[in-house]
């Protein structure tokens, strides 16, 4: 059951990821990105990371994709606006991506990755909510605080970036 689900979900994730790249319409790209994220959340569930799957759906599929769609609508990019891609650019991108893929794959194949136990044999630690809180409030307490500050600063930055300062911008 689990291998079948894994293959289905990974096919879904990779297929929709390719469609994000190739689709002509920006809104379609955002929708395929959403489906790809949901597939990734499914893979997280298969890896017993239930909390992370829920957070991925909430933060990414809920907030980030909604923000992307909002900006696409705001900037008024309707369908069929993609200019035709030059063959040279496509070829160069394919070659560069293939080189990267082969490099990382050879690292995965020949690197010293010892953990090749079947997943049924391994008890899951990521499934327990208690272990998250135990880690976040002891070992990782300082990073939690820093991330809190980061969110605050990001919020201030967005306000400053998107506010119009009348009379302070130089005229175009």
């Amino acid at each position: 059951m689990a291998p079948l689900l894994f293959y289905l979900l990974s096919a879904l994730v990779l297929g929709t990821a390719l469609l994000v790249v190739t689709s002509k319409n920006a809104v379609n790209s955002a929708m395929f990105f959403l489906i790809s994220l949901l597939g990734t959340a499914g893979l997280f569930v298969l890896l017993d990371a239930f909390l992370l799957a829920a957070v991925l759906v909430l933060v990414y599929a809920g907030a980030v994709v909604a923000l992307f769609l909002f900006i696409i609508m705001l900037l008024g990019m309707k369908g069929g606006e993609r200019p035709p891609l030059s063959h040279f650019a496509v070829l160069a991108s394919v070659v560069a991506a293939a080189i990267l893929g082969v490099g990382v794959l050879s690292f995965v194949k020949h690197g010293q990755i010892t953990a090749s136990i079947a997943d049924a044999a391994v008890p899951a630690t990521g499934a327990v909510l208690k272990s998250y809180s135990a880690q976040l409030f002891t070992t990782y307490l300082l990073p939690v605080q820093v991330v809190g500050f980061l969110l605050l600063i990001a919020m201030l930055g967005v306000i400053v970036l998107s506010k119009r300062f009348e009379g302070m911008e130089e005229s175009k």
Binding site: A2, P3, F6, S10, V13, L14, A17, L18, V20, V21, A26, S29, S36, T40, L43, L46, L47, F68, I71, I72, L75, M77, R82, P83, L85, A89, V90, A92, S93, V94, A96, A97, A98, L100, G101, V104, L105, V108, K109, I113, A115, S116, I117, A118, D119, A120
Partner: peptide
């Protein structure tokens, strides 16, 4: 059963697809 290498394969392929998109597309949002 599904091993670690299978998940890493999916992860690498997804990363490569994203990299391909970053190189190929001309729309900032995409």
């Amino acid at each position: 059963s599904v091993t670690l290498n299978d998940y890493l394969l999916v992860s690498v392929l997804m990363f490569v697809v994203g990299f391909f998109g970053v190189l190929m597309r001309r729309n900032t949002l995409i």
